[in-house]
Design a binder for these strands. Structure first.
Lengths: 189, 189
DNA sequence: TTACTATACGGAGGCCACCTCCGCTTTTTC
DNA sequence: GAAAAAGCGGAGGTGGCCTCCGTATAGTAA
């Protein structure tokens, strides 16, 4: 579980740190309620700080999203190691992808952002990608070694495909599961 | 090729009809350049009409998108019948999905909208869905009958999965093809 | 042609979000 | 406790969304 630390920018001055936390909390709520288009001014209001404070700390929407999602992303990675310990190679991979989809459907915005993000190159997303890649490749390589999935598969392809599942609106958990089963069938050797 | 006619609202008065065409053309350009978030005021400017004219004809963004995409959607449907005539069942299905992905990657906004739209229920999207479904199910059922794909597959599942492929940013045609191959492998009986 | 009516035009204006800038306040440091 | 460093917050400029309504024009009938 050697994850490279995700760069966070929590400030040190006590008032700034408090506001940082308030903003991240308000952002988490707002993004959950209204998706990633939530109004930043509304988030500042909700946090009880001025809009200027928000923008000083988070120069753009993405910066705030990063701060909001850093925990979730870490937990996605960590789950991979848990499954690797408890299940056979293929089952661990399938379980990880399944947990990713389930989680993403419930918190719909994350997967979308994350999937979009897999093509970005900010410092944060690079670190994030490194971690996810490390975790995912552990599972994928184990499954390849076992011979249960095709050896030419690339992790990023699988993740983008799985991420795409949750991008559509009104995706029911049942439908998401059916789509994932198609993908899983497509991985098999 | 019994497509239900997609409802269009091109007006009859000559000045209104001219402006309608100008707006749709400007909309097509702007959506291609800036995605579906393109500014409607910019579109009105580009068309050389007042913003009021745009809004009278197209009460919201979706209405304009519908008018812009009605042709593209029809051509997606029509291609299905072409492939059905020229290729074996499985190959026709695969070719249709491939053409859908290729097209969507180049004109990226459409697929996104269309995929999102597959969960909507405006009159337009219902008609659109009917047409796509009719065309797609012809191909899918033929492939099922041939025994080349799994019988429990649902067309809408496949379309959402394929639509999801093109939602991420910076998707290269090569990567899109690889993702589609995974999906196609997942369809096989 | 003319006169009348239905239809359409277009932009001003209200609202709101984005984002920047900078005078004021608070914390930290010495 | 005073100076320096760091942070605060909201006014204000820009621009997009959408509505409303006074003005202009096409269609029509005489």
């Amino acid at each position: 579980m050697t994850s490279t630390p995700l760069p966070t920018t929590r400030p040190t001055r006590v008032d700034a740190a408090r506001n940082y936390d308030l903003l991240v909390a308000a952002g988490r709520e707002a993004f959950a309620e209204h998706g990633t288009d939530a109004s930043l001014e509304e988030i500042a209001r909700r946090a009880g700080v001025g809009i200027g404070t928000l923008y000083r700390r988070f120069p753009n929407r993405t910066a705030l999203l990063e701060a909001v999602y850093v925990d979730e992303i870490q937990s996605v990675c960590n789950r991979a190691y848990g499954f690797a310990d408890q299940l056979g190679p293929y089952e661990a991979l399938a379980a990880w992808l399944r947990s990713f989809v389930d989680y993403s459907v419930s918190k719909k915005s994350l997967a979308g952002e994350l999937t979009v993000a897999l093509g970005k190159d900010s410092e944060f997303f690079t670190a994030c990608k490194t971690n996810v890649r490390e975790a995912g490749e552990l599972l994928l390589n184990a499954a390849k070694a076992e011979g249960s999935v095709r050896p030419e598969l690339q992790l990023m392809d699988i993740l983008r495909l799985v991420g795409g599942i949750t991008m559509g609106r009104d995706m029911s958990p049942e439908q998401a599961d059916r789509l994932l089963e198609i993908v899983l069938a497509g991985l098999k050797a």
